[in-house]
Design a protein around this nucleic acid. Structure first.
Length: 416
RNA sequence: GUGAGUGUAGCCCAGUGGUCUAAGGCGCCAGGUUGUGGCCCUGGAUAUCGAGGGUUCAAAUCCCUCCACUCACCCCA
């Protein structure tokens, strides 16, 4: 094989496209339902944008970014996530002058240099929704409702909604401190990786999968017990809204997310019996991010979902996807004159909005019909020398195998 | 970055040292009389057996190196 797609990337072949178009359509529909408008941002941005927003010490920034210098010596990075770009656009275009919150959604390719495996790729696609400019917990509830409804409406079953609150700039340090002091006494029970996490990123201690560490994590201090009054009130109100909306959330004290910008609300939607790379959607509040990017303090919340993982789940659960439309008519012909008639007819039908596949080459009629059959068209139009002389064509119904001779001029009306 | 598994035609795969100048199935192409698909039958094309090196009289089959893919860890959608 001379060339193949780079590791962790893949071609989306025609046979897969129905899934992609289906999801895109559902994304647009639910955006419309909740008042979100589409935004598309560049595939790459100034490297500093991601470093600042995602967090200098996160895995994404330290080892997963596709960073390059362009010919003008600017350091650019292929977007490793969607939120930072949307916030940049919000600031750059003065969207704070619009009624708040500004609700935006996107469908975009995402790039991370990781070892690919099931449900994880170096280039993958995410769709996401961001609501910027409002801190009301009712908005958190609405966003989570949107996320939940999105998957439920696709007839995906056995999903769970994981929820947590990780506090704000004021109260989180207290929590991290108490987490540290809890863990320091138990360092010997931890796996080697957790020993280093203890120093570098204590929050991550909570979601280590090692059995021993799990045990320690289960009894660890909970972030919700360290929330300041404002954060606690916000979280309580959110839970109240989720109950009103009848969303079956599970407060998961070990849910922490890998991007630094999250504050207060964090949530994920996971399949119940998921493998390791199973999270379908994740998100939360990022009340400090716009400010850190140079704007005035602006609360915001959003989430993103992985398209490939969603498709994986749709397939596993055998969710029926509507087929993509395709031509219903195949035109077969025999002889040079017939081909001219067929060529003109095909153009006329297409002009009238009827999709047509015209036979090419000079294959036998048998071969042409075989092709028509495998294309799955509803009708075959057959034009041979006799038909040319008579100004007619044979219209064959590929389902019933019934056929009749009709005037060429009548076809457009019959096939419309 | 770490660990494990796998690499034979477009796809699924048989074949574990010598009749392998590689079998089968799907798919593809053609034919089964003069201009008709789907079923069936017949025929055909398509494989430097992942790459390179080594062992041997002899290697798809054994050894080494590399590469790729898959799965898992890390982390995330």
């Amino acid at each position: 094989m001379l060339y193949q797609a780079p590791r962790g990337t893949s071609d989306i072949l025609p046979e897969e496209q129905a899934y992609w178009r289906f999801i895109e359509q559902k994304v647009a529909e639910s955006a419309q339902l909740y008042g979100y408008e589409r935004i598309d941002t560049p595939a790459f941005e100034d490297t500093k944008l991601f470093a600042r927003s995602v967090g200098e010490d996160t895995d994404i920034v330290t080892k997963e970014m596709y960073t390059f210098e362009d010919r003008g010596k600017s350091s650019l990075t292929l977007r490793p996530e969607g939120t930072a770009s949307v916030c940049r656009a919000y600031l750059e275009h003065g969207l704070h002058n619009q009624p708040q919150p500004v609700k935006l959604y996107y469908i975009a390719s995402i790039f991370r240099y990781e070892r690919p495996q099931a449900g994880r790729y170096r280039q993958h696609y995410q769709f996401g929704y961001e609501a910027i400019g409002e801190g009301d917990p009712a908005l958190d509830g609405e966003v989570i409702d949107l996320a939940w409804r999105f998957f439920a409406d696709m007839n995906l079953r056995r999903l769970t909604l994981q929820l947590n609150s990780i506090g704000c700039k004021q109260c989180r340090p207290n929590y991290v401190d108490s987490l540290k002091s809890y863990y320091v006494g138990r360092a010997l029970e931890l796996c080697p990786e957790c020993q280093t996490r203890l120093k570098r990123n204590p929050l991550r201690l909570l979601d280590c999968k090692q059995a021993g560490c799990q045990k320690v994590a289960a009894a660890a201090p909970k972030s919700v017990d360290y929330l300041c009054n404002e954060c606690a009130g916000h979280f309580n109100q959110l839970k109240r809204y989720l109950e009103l909306l009848k969303l079956p959330f599970n407060v998961n004290h070990q849910l922490v997310r890998g991007l630094d910008y999250y504050t207060r609300t964090v949530f994920e939607i996971q399949p119940e019996a998921g493998g390791s790379q199973s999270t379908l959607a994740g998100g939360g509040r990022y009340d400090d991010l716009i400010g850190e990017l140079g704007g005035k303090p602006t609360p915001a919340i959003g989430f993103a979902a992985g398209m490939e993982r969603l498709i994986l789940n749709l397939k596993e659960q055998k969710v029926a996807i509507p087929p993509l439309p395709k031509p219903r008519v195949f035109i077969a012909c025999l002889g040079d004159e017939a081909k001219e008639t067929a060529t003109k007819l095909a153009a006329e039908l297409r002009g009238a909005g009827v999709g047509v596949i015209a036979a090419m080459g000079d294959k036998s009629l048998k071969a042409q019909l075989r092709q028509a059959n495998s294309l799955g068209v509803r009708y075959a139009v057959i034009i041979g020398e006799e038909e040319v002389r008579a100004g007619t064509a044979v219209l064959r119904d590929m389902g019933s195998a019934e056929q009749k001779s009709v005037a060429v001029g009548e076809l457009q009306g019959l096939l419309k």
